[in-house]
Design a protein around this nucleic acid. Sequence first.
DNA 1: CTTGTGTTTTGAACACATTCAAAAGTGTTC
DNA 2: GAACACTTTTGAATGTGTTCAAAACACAAG
Lengths: 218, 218
Amino acid sequence: MKTTKAEETRNRILDAALELFRERGFAETTMRDVAVAAGVATGAAYYYYRSKEDLVMAFYVRTDQEAAEMFAAAVAASKKLEKRIKGLIEAKFAQFAEHRALLTALLKTGVDPRDPLSPFGEETRAVREENIAWYARAIEGSDVKLPKDIAADVPRLLWLYHMGLVYFWITDESEGQVRTHRLLDATVELVVGLLKAAALPFMGPLRKKAVKVMRAFE
Amino acid sequence: MKTTKAEETRNRILDAALELFRERGFAETTMRDVAVAAGVATGAAYYYYRSKEDLVMAFYVRTDQEAAEMFAAAVAASKKLEKRIKGLIEAKFAQFAEHRALLTALLKTGVDPRDPLSPFGEETRAVREENIAWYARAIEGSDVKLPKDIAADVPRLLWLYHMGLVYFWITDESEGQVRTHRLLDATVELVVGLLKAAALPFMGPLRKKAVKVMRAFE
DNA sequence: CTTGTGTTTTGAACACATTCAAAAGTGTTC
DNA sequence: GAACACTTTTGAATGTGTTCAAAACACAAG
């Protein structure tokens, strides 16, 4: 738990930023505000973070890592893949609930895959792979047995599915994000149903076609 | 074809902007550059366009409208739905090819549905509905008969599918966007196959489930 | 013509993210 | 403890999207 002085400053800046972002909103908070609140000069914020959005990314990474126990609990809670996936995604929502709106800032830069903060880019590989690994664990020992030819790809696909829901959630202004939860309920059923159906003997050709699509994605 | 003086100025600004965007890139072009190139004061650009991105949107709308004949040709070219959809999407790519990179600017603001320039928002309804209508026309008189319960939703879903491909295309840096074309080939087959399968008698329950999902989307 | 009203155009001013050169601090080597 | 190198901190300067109050213009009504 030893934090050097620099670490301490770094955290102070992030904490100050988050507090202001939550109170006032991302766009309404200036980097000067953040610096003042953290008790440092404006330039200091840029010594530790590349951009205003980078602050949000730091928050995202930190929060996502802190969620590890909740993810583990979600997987442990049931043998049913459907429940596990729902659990994982709901855990993520719960974790980020307080700062939901803030994440739109990440969306804006993130849609461009060339942006360092893109969820598909090189820089975010570590978090991404960690997240994908959770879906691999969810499948392992669940009630769904995957055919060999698609097994390697499915965790990545589930991650993609989860990203879609996260996007929907971030932009969902309905009370308590009910709409997202309804969508989750409906689609998770569909997705797992599809995975189960994929194992049926006569589904071989269709799987081949699907695998071909995934290869195009790379 | 009468263009008032104001119209003329408006167009001059957009044309100057596009020229610069193509030569130099969106981020690298300043609004001052645009104004100078168009022979007006900086403020004039903002009299006609709300923002720098709004220039791109104006270009998008204009180009999309100009594509009407190509869309019509794509639908007329075949009775096979698969070919028609491919044709529509390829027509769009062809039309925007020269300014592909430019559209990332729209992505950035567009991911936020609250943004006026979002493809899902109120302001863009007209273009969106026009685009959706093309998919309705593609289905009409094609080799695919849709079940009543989903018929109304399918054009909108195809539009969504096409948006996904457009997103992929915009961000696809492969030579001539081959990867997107491969993805298009592979998925359009899958999509149409799915629509055909949906008509089979025993698919009723699954369709019901799918419709439920669409309702959650609203 | 003159006046008045609405439209178009102007360019300076503003706000804010980001950069940068210089200063201050910290620690290490002799 | 002096000299050096490296890290951290500073705050002024820069660049650019956007706003705005004032001018210039267009044109209708009297």
